[in-house]
Design a protein around this nucleic acid. Structure first.
Lengths: 343, 343
DNA sequence: TTGAAAGCGCTAACAG
DNA sequence: CTGTTAGCGCTTTCAA
């Protein structure tokens, strides 16, 4: 069974005995058409199962394609899934479709994806920048009117809109919560790589909170993990120090899973925990997990709205929009520090 | 600042003083080209920031576009995120890019998306079919050689490849596990709508397990929920029956979250639970949550591999491939039924 | 109200 | 090794 050719405008026109342009007119509701021809054309379209070739149309019209290119680190990460959903919800009514790819936080893969998207003449480009990626090659595109938005982290080498969480303030609030409950030995388990923007910002918030409380910054309390298992290891390491941590701050959702899993395994209910980014079932844990919740929906919505405004001609300065985080106190951060019992 | 035109092949050709075809040859490594011209061309390409227009290329070449259309119910659902990731990983080396959209389980939105994808001449179409959707309009496309794959659920009106979980066997095993621990009053909280394929299959597995143990099927024990809050309500309802459930089977991951949350809130540690589909932190709960785990990665990989084989000319009969589930015993299903204490 | 011709950016087919 | 011509499927422009 040979892959027979899809019907074209010309096929429909021939079927009706009319010119291709007339068919085009009917389908695009461009120009006039007699009720009679319109009906005949629509009938032929249905009969042949004709679907206009969007690529051909786009070529001729010359404008950008009705797609939006989205580069994220990992399609399977629920955080980015939520962001993508919000973007789609926002752009759908404008008729834009999502072209997605994951970079695995690899600058080369990120570049390959953006190049592909550019070759497809996307209407909008949204990128979660990988560490080490440079974006100066996008300057000319942005100058030519292509909206480019960075998500979750700022990009390098290109001045454009960025939508990020309030990482620093959020981490500060989470750590301050632990300090308020008497903790002085607070472990920090962050993202990898250590140069990652979100990790740096959250660590900065951690340090600020310590400073405000006149607590020393002890490098031995700061570590990192790039997956759940790594967070398990980091947890037992921090609890095994000569002067161990009495509380832990999780730098992201994956780390949070590792910390909680390890504390559950080792039955260390005495350790206070605050996590950056919410996780499912946080309320069902014992104690329920206190988190600094991000708002991925708001990040996605804002990114989409910003890009659409640019598409509509907004030529104002590039902005960095910070989406607030919210401390959700559920219990795990309120376990008092044992050392404070100074009877 | 006007949106100035992107450079074309002709622009590059003019810059070098050579024909458009020569530039095309160099870029596509088609036909011969002197080292000299090659260099000049590449230099001009870099200088102008030329990127070939993939749509124009596709039109001329006539084949399908190097995209794969993927329709899922919800971009934010981690299960489908994992499926999408596996698909992307499998097709990436073939140079295919993901075109994604969410249907919200609405047949009309599903149809609008597939039509868009068809208009873009995708190489492959993958669909998680919505309840009530009909797919006979895809017959001609499939006959013309377009690989169409249904994910998670079979489609209606079209005979083509489907990749599904072993819903029935998995649910059976989970319920049998509860029965083996003495439970006779096992509540079932399923998906909505009730006609959803996965719900029907899982309920069938539940019934089979009951039958095998000569337990009656009590409709009062079967309910449903379409979100976490609904599952909370359903849980308290099943536990409030005159002859209440002593164990619960969750029909999906969202329901599992609701059940666990409600049992934690009401401190009902005496209730045994098994959930269909794994959830994060299942091990950290008390008791740890026993689940019938699906394998979204394998579903995605299999779907992609099947579609690629079709693309390579496999014309064998449409297959339904069942990806096994796996019972992961963690404790929550082993709580003994109180009624069984018969001195 | 309709059609013919030209052309979008690219490549196939054939020259040279 | 390189160029010319034609044409992919569609829309724009102009004319009827």
């Amino acid at each position: 069974m040979a892959a027979n050719r899809r019907p074209t405008l010309a096929d429909v026109a021939r079927e009706v005995g009319v010119s291709a342009k007339t068919v085009s007119r009917v389908l695009n509701e461009d120009g006039p058409a007699s009720a009679q021809t319109r009906e005949q054309v629509l009938a032929a379209v249905a009969k042949l199962g004709f679907q206009p070739n969007l690529m051909a149309r786009n070529i001729r019209v010359g404008g950008p394609d009705t797609t939006i290119g989205l580069v994220i680190p990992d399609l399977g990460n629920p955080f980015f899934g939520a962001v993508a959903r919000a973007i789609e919800d926002t752009v759908r009514e404008r008729g834009l479709t999502l072209l997605m790819g994951s970079s695995a936080d690899d600058p080369d893969r990120e570049r390959a994806l953006t190049d592909k998207f550019l070759a497809r003449r996307v209407s909008i480009l949204m990128i979660v920048p990988s560490v080490g990626a440079d974006h100066s090659h996008l300057k000319s595109h942005r100058a030519a009117g292509l909206p480019v938005v960075f998500l979750d982290r700022p990009g390098v080498g290109l001045s454009t809109d960025s939508i990020v969480s309030s990482n620093r303030a959020g981490a500060h609030d989470g750590v301050a919560h632990l300090i308020a409950h008497g903790h002085r030995r607070i472990g920090f388990i962050g993202d990898l790589p250590v140069k990652l923007y979100t990790r740096r910002e959250r660590l900065a918030g951690y340090r600020t909170a310590l400073q405000e409380a006149d607590l020393p910054y002890d490098r031995a309390l700061v570590t990192n993990a790039h997956d759940q298992q790594g967070a398990v290891t980091a947890t037992s390491q921090l609890l095994g120090l000569a002067d161990p941590a009495t509380a832990l701050f999780a730098g992201n959702n994956i780390v949070a899973l590792g910390i909680v899993a390890e504390l559950a395994r080792s039955k260390r209910k005495d350790i206070a925990v605050v996590a950056f980014d919410d996780v499912p079932l946080a309320e069902a844990l014992e104690p329920a997990l206190t988190v600094v919740a991000q708002d991925p929906e708001e990040i996605g919505r804002t990114a989409a709205a910003t890009a659409l405004a640019r598409l509509d001609g907004d030529r104002s300065r590039a902005r960095t929009i910070t989406v607030p985080t919210r401390l959700i106190v559920r219990g795990s951060g309120e376990h008092p520090a044992p050392a404070l019992q100074e009877g």
